[in-house]
Write a protein that binds this DNA or RNA. Structure first.
Length: 304
DNA sequence: GCCTTCT
DNA sequence: AGAAGGCAACGCCGC
DNA sequence: GCGGCG
């Protein structure tokens, strides 16, 4: 396993440690993936990804020993970082003290994080400069074990339609796991607890109207139904960033899709080996998202 | 992966 | 000097 | 109050 390699990005010299280390072992249909390949992936999608990371507190999920090892979450960047890595400290809600989060504003930081084996980039729903006021609204569709992924498509459409009925513009991404996220941009003018209450109300109504959905968090009460998980709208919660790799065999990637692609979409269709090509030919379906932000306060009023 | 602390 | 340990968090609900 | 769940 070979030593170190220097790269220059944004006029900064970074040292990559163990670039040939295998982070994703080979699977039946995909070759092994090294850290250098993860770095190359993030460089290839940087222009698309960086706008989605700008001004967002990051939580890293790191796997220095590869995806077969346990890995760990990291919110507090703790020790020394290069001076050019942006961080924002936020106080704990209940305990004293604060957490110093990385905020990724440029390609060099993205590569720095990839070198730390950050195989999942999770983001908060509040802008870093507007803590406590979400500018994203998310519903996570989480199917039960053994669920046919094709049956999820009409359900994603149903949630998207409900978004439109309450004035939100829905944006869909595959999670790289088993489900989809339906996301909408908000004007951050409403406290997080009220946005969470709105999300719960929306999910509750959907589950009441359509028996294929549930809001039961206990597995043994879901009874084969698809969980509408809205808890991620709460304080200090996070969602997987678009275009983040996932720490699962085969290196799937959370990937935004067009509504029309739902007819054929699968939650694990995109991976480190095919996303750059997809972006080159189709562009980013979420590129214009921020233009469609609607007042979170108005959403809350409408759902009460 | 890297830093901090224990031995 | 080397080994060991750490690295998130919130709200729900059943018990 | 603790632990599973996401």
């Amino acid at each position: 396993m070979s030593g170190r390699e220097r790269v220059e990005i944004d006029g900064r010299v970074l040292t990559l440690s163990n670039p040939t280390k295998v982070l994703y072992p080979a699977t039946d249909d995909r070759a092994e993936i090294t850290k250098a390949q993860v770095v190359d992936y993030y460089r290839a999608v940087a222009a698309t990804l960086l706008p989605h990371l700008r001004n967002r507190l990051l939580t890293l999920r790191r796997y220095p020993e590869g995806v077969e090892s346990a890995g760990f979450f990291q919110k507090d960047s703790g020790g020394r970082l290069p001076s050019w890595v942006h961080t924002v400290s936020v106080p704990h809600r209940h305990q004293s003290g604060s957490v110093r989060h990385v905020v990724c504003e440029d390609e060099s930081t993205l590569v720095y994080l990839a070198n730390l084996a950050s195989l999942e980039l999770h983001i908060r729903l509040c802008p870093a400069d507007r803590p406590g006021y979400p500018d994203r609204f998310v519903v996570d569709l989480d199917p039960p074990p053994g669920h046919d992924p094709r049956e999820l498509r009409p359900l994603v459409r149903r949630v998207s339609e409900r978004f439109e009925e309450v004035g939100l513009t829905p944006y869909v991404q595959t999670t790289g796991g088993k489900g989809f996220h339906v996301v909408a941009p908000l004007v951050p003018d409403c406290p997080v607890d009220e946005v969470l209450a709105s999300a719960r109300e929306m999910a509750r109504r959907l589950a009441e109207e359509d028996r294929r959905f549930t809001v039961e968090q206990r597995r043994d009460r879901r009874n084969g139904r698809v969980l509408l998980d809205v808890n991620r709208n709460g304080h200090a919660q996070t969602v997987i960033a678009p275009y983040s790799t996932r720490a699962r065999p085969g290196a799937p990637v959370a990937t935004p899709i067009q509504p029309r692609e739902l007819a054929r979409a699968r939650p694990d269709a995109y991976h480190l080996g095919n996303v750059a090509r997809r972006l080159a030919s189709k562009g980013d379906p979420w590129a214009e998202m921020d233009r469609h932000a609607v007042s979170a306060a108005r959403l809350h009023a409408r759902l009460s």
